[in-house]
Nucleic acid binder design. Structure first.
Lengths: 261, 261
DNA sequence: CGCTCGTTTGATATATTTCAAGAATTGTGG
DNA sequence: CCACAATTCTTGAAATATATCAAACGAGCG
């Protein structure tokens, strides 16, 4: 799509194009942003709660997640990120990080200094609006998570997370088209849906018995998307993917159905 | 603070000034935004989930709240808003509302068409950045709510909400300086903290017995802020009020303490 | 091959929900 | 301003989803 599909920052452009049309000139402006690629191990922190980060991180490969902790020791995972996510725009724009950002797997990131990014956003409203959109959509996802954690039972809650992740993976062109794999520990999954690892385990096994998912190693695969969407109470409108030019490859009709109301 | 303290949109300027310095010219630009004041009854919807709103709503008086519902009928309140909150910027910028927005009490709003607002944001980066900040801070609050609902027990959870509300009230100059009152039904409170009204009731009574709060009619007042902060696991850094010029009136030392780490 | 980390299983505990009904408060119309 | 209706609040007893604790099992890794 871009004349420069091999450019390091291409995943960022691709993501921004979900919500706005970007001209070739716009893309070039993005590609000219200063940046520094870095390889990162699983488990390494990109940002600590309380830091004053100077860079936004564009995820190039691998997965990352945000989390914060309560006084009683409980940890809550707030979001999981994948290729193309301009993670930590919020922390660096706000000045002080209000949560941690950690690699879930090993991977690569491009560090982009916040000041040029901020200037670009206001110099070029198309890009600025797209970046604002990205933070707004993240806000929408947080709202859905409040609902998910607050008002859904364990089975629905876990399924919902799996559906969200699958759909975002597909849009981000990560993983194969016919199934979706999530490299996550059951303990991490528990912290994401605010349950106990033990209970997550039992619930996952139940979902597997019911023929909805398959699990191998640390991977989870959705095998019956349609049924899963129903179990999960999953209505992906909150992901605001409407404007996507994205033409889905295989099992996408079913996915679209989930979006309809 | 402003030369135009009586202007209808002054609460918006005051709020934006929490995070950025706005020049007199900036303020004038905001004041020139087209807007329409409207009086609204308690319970009335400002936006429905799925709407395509054309206006942002500036709350001038009264309280409003956002909420969305799960397939099982459960309702989750996502945030509560007060004077000066530019509510529904997100829905109108994103195009389609992903949640409902409803008045908690009667009050007044100023409807601001989204297009001039958007143009102003990009014409004037100071204002634009301030508005972006506002949406980012809201995002931070949502993250804290995920943690609150996900990982805190009923007593802590309710206390936390009361603390957040109290602090935001004080910053917004709503209510008296020595105590903070929240005009909310126990059922609504239950939907905000993802508990049952019955359990909220028992927990509130316990908090009252313990001398932390007082309740009269539909109002809740925090009487022991210091103790409450501890019970609530409340660390207000997530509200990102650091940059405030705001000089607190009375019981503010205690409030500042809560922010320290 | 042994060790560590993650998963699985079972038994028990508990915070919160559910159900139900009465008391109190708020709102409303006359 | 009162009386009635409708919420909202309060209380109790029983049910349940999920947490807790503990131990065995399995898999990846140096």
């Amino acid at each position: 799509m871009s004349q420069n599909p091999e450019h390091v920052l291409a995943p960022m452009v691709q993501k921004l194009c979900l919500w706005t049309e970007l001209s070739e000139a716009d893309r070039e402006e993005i590609y000219e942003l200063p940046h520094q690629v870095r390889k990162i191990d699983a488990g390494q922190y990109l940002v600590w709660d309380g830091d004053k980060p100077q860079n936004a991180c564009l995820l190039l490969s691998g997965f990352a997640y945000r989390h914060k902790s309560a006084g009683n020791g409980g940890r809550q995972i707030l979001s999981i990120h994948m290729k193309g996510d301009l993670v930590d725009l919020q922390n660096s724009l706000l000045g002080t990080a209000d949560h941690n950002l950690q690699m879930l797997t090993s991977g690569e990131v491009a560090l982009i200094p916040i000041q040029p990014l901020r200037e670009l956003a206001f110099r070029n409203p198309s890009i600025g609006m797209a970046m604002w959109y990205e933070t707004l959509v993240e806000g929408s996802i947080f709202r859905e998570w409040v609902l998910n954690v607050g008002r859904r039972d364990a089975r629905t809650r876990i399924s919902h997370l799996l559906c969200e992740f699958a759909l975002r993976m597909e849009v981000a062109n990560v993983g194969g088209p016919t199934n979706y794999e999530l490299p996550i520990t059951q303990e991490q999954l528990a912290d994401a849906v605010a349950l106990t690892p033990v209970h997550v385990n039992r619930t996952l096994m139940k979902l597997e018995q019911d023929g909805l998912i398959t699990r191998t190693k640390r991977m989870i695969t959705i095998i019956d998307w349609k049924a899963m969407v129903k179990v999960a109470d999953f209505q992906p409108r909150y992901l605001h993917l409407d404007r996507q030019e994205y033409r889905p490859p295989a099992r996408s009709e079913e996915m679209q159905q989930a979006g309809a109301r």
